[in-house]
């Protein structure tokens, strides 16, 4: 188990380096550091001196990947890439272009993100699985047909419709909740309600259908026939046998997402102007703030890898056959 974890963590290092390299090249292959400085200082009328000064201030005056003029190891280390990437492995994300500390910013913005993402995730999971189990129970009947058709229609509706429609109905028409915004403490509930509801709604069709497929696949297996041959009721078969076994494919898809909940949803947050990590990222991209984007990408992929490890560990709980090697 411990050997396994260590191996997974070691494997994470090349992946994180790869991710960094990718983001880095995305920013610097198309646009040079000069372009970035010009963008930050205002497109027009920038003197070359001002650009140089900005670059120096923000540490972009070095070569990109390889410093031919430096000595020894600093041929690699004295570059923008190395300087900006290496520190991230110890969670030193540096500061954004407007001078704020990124790590602190992430800390304060994490809570609103979680306040939306976690309930969406949990409530969603509950509803989707319940709905799917119901369809499985009534499989091959008119009810099942109805459920599946409903799922297909729901998944064909654009998520934008739910957002725009939801905001319109709940806030404008009925004045239930504010359209957007966020407040801390108990106030947050009224701000969180609508995004969560819409988030759950948005994928009810696709998810329920997916879970149903998984349940149906399990229900066709031999052990289910054995369970029925024992004289067990269909409900018990469904909950005690099918659900337990279906947890294996379900966990594969679900657990990997849990760590990413910290990242928030980029889209939901920007639609509802919630000061979470998602909207932070979108704003940073719009402002060409490389530091922030790089930090968020790094954080995202780290959480993703954590999710993979978590998935493997969760297998050991539901599947006795899995021993981590």
């Amino acid at each position: 188990m411990i050997a396994y974890l260590i191996r997974r963590l070691l494997y994470a290092i090349p992946i994180l380096i790869g991710v960094n390299l990718l983001t880095f090249s995305l920013f610097f292959v198309v646009n040079t550091a000069d372009d970035m400085a010009r963008m930050q200082l205002g497109m027009k009328r920038v003197t070359p001196e001002a650009i140089e000064k900005w670059k120096q201030q923000h540490g972009y005056d070095k070569p990109l990947l390889f410093n031919a003029s430096a000595e020894g190891a600093s041929k690699i280390s004295d570059t923008i890439f190395f300087q900006k990437s290496a520190k991230m492995f110890v969670f030193d994300f540096g500061s954004s272009n407007d001078g704020r500390n990124i790590a602190r910013e992430i800390q304060t913005r994490m809570m609103p993100s979680l306040a939306i993402a976690l309930p969406t995730f949990l409530i969603g999971l509950l509803i989707y699985i319940t709905f799917a189990l119901l369809m499985t129970f009534f499989r091959a009947t008119a009810l099942d047909m109805l459920g599946v058709s409903l799922c297909v229609v729901l998944m064909s509706i654009s998520g934008l419709f739910y957002i725009i429609g939801g905001q319109f109905v709940a806030s404008k028409l009925w004045h239930w909740v504010p359209i957007s915004g966020y407040a801390g403490g108990f106030d947050s509930i009224k701000f969180v309600l609508l995004p969560v509801l819409i988030g759950v709604m948005g994928s009810v069709g696709a998810s329920s259908r997916w879970y149903r497929t998984i349940f149906l696949e399990e229900i066709g297996k031999d052990y289910v026939r054995t369970a029925r041959a024992k004289g067990l009721s269909e409900l018990r078969v469904l909950f005690h046998h099918v659900l337990k076994n279906a947890m294996i494919p379900i966990l594969t898809a679900v657990v990997v997402v849990i760590p990413l909940l910290f990242m928030g949803s980029l889209l939901t947050e920007s639609f509802f102007s919630i000061p979470g990590l998602g909207s932070y990222t979108i704003d940073a991209i719009k402002a060409q703030d490389f530091g922030v984007v790089r930090a968020m990408v790094f954080l995202g992929s780290m959480l993703y890898i954590a999710g993979l490890v978590l998935t493997d560990i969760s297998y050991t709980i539901v599947d006795p056959r899995v021993r981590l090697k």
């Binding site: 041959a229 337990k244 599947d319």
Partner: peptide
């Protein structure tokens, strides 16, 4: 089923609930 009439199957590997 299972009380008065019981059944065993061809593939013992697949016929038992693995979890």
């Amino acid at each position: 089923r299972g009380g008065q009439m019981a059944m065993i199957f061809q593939e013992p590997g697949l016929s038992l609930n693995p979890v």
